[in-house]
Design a binder for these strands. Structure first.
Length: 154
DNA sequence: GCCAACGTTGGC
DNA sequence: GCCAACGTTGGC
């Protein structure tokens, strides 16, 4: 079992969108970075859990938690010419990109903001806080996960 | 809107 | 394989 943090812009796909999806479930598609692709394709599995992070918005921070419903599978949006995530170089017989199904577990009662994350010594190694980090999915340690759930409930 | 940081592309 | 140019991310 792995712990993850997954970033999304709330205006594009935020926690409200996931909450409003059928069964609070959606495909996390559109990943177009090889490091992130590798994590989805090679590591994600049913039973993993993930934090939902809002980026590029008024209050960046962690807003909830999700379940990973199964292993990664080919990202079909890469094959659709009119889709804005279309990638003509992705061959359906040898897909370049992968996505994963996620289900909203909990919307936190408050946003754990980026400045708050930075304040906690226990979180100082989080990859999301590393300068220049641009990966939309990053692994989280069990200790970080626990700390964040505690903060969310406080 | 600015800009630092990083990934990708493509000429050589 | 090098590396400059370019595009994207994301906080501020």
């Amino acid at each position: 079992m792995h712990y993850w943090l997954m970033k999304s812009e709330p205006e594009v796909f935020g926690i409200d969108h996931l909450a409003a999806s059928p069964k609070r479930t959606a495909a996390w598609d559109g990943v177009r970075n090889y490091q992130v692709r590798n994590m989805i394709r090679d590591q994600m599995q049913k039973g993993d859990v993930a934090l939902f992070y809002h980026s590029s918005c008024a209050e960046p921070g962690i807003v909830g938690s999700m379940r990973i419903l199964g292993p990664g599978y080919p990202d079909s949006t890469a094959f659709q010419p009119r889709h804005h995530h279309f990638d003509p170089k992705s061959d359906p017989k040898k897909p370049s990109w992968y996505m994963v199904d996620v289900q909203l577990e909990k919307r936190f009662p408050r946003t754990i903001s980026l400045p708050e994350l930075k304040r906690h010594a226990a979180l100082k190694s989080m990859l999301i806080l590393r300068r220049g980090n641009r990966l939309s999915i990053t692994p989280v340690t069990p200790a970080e996960w626990k700390t964040i759930l505690t903060l969310a409930a406080s």
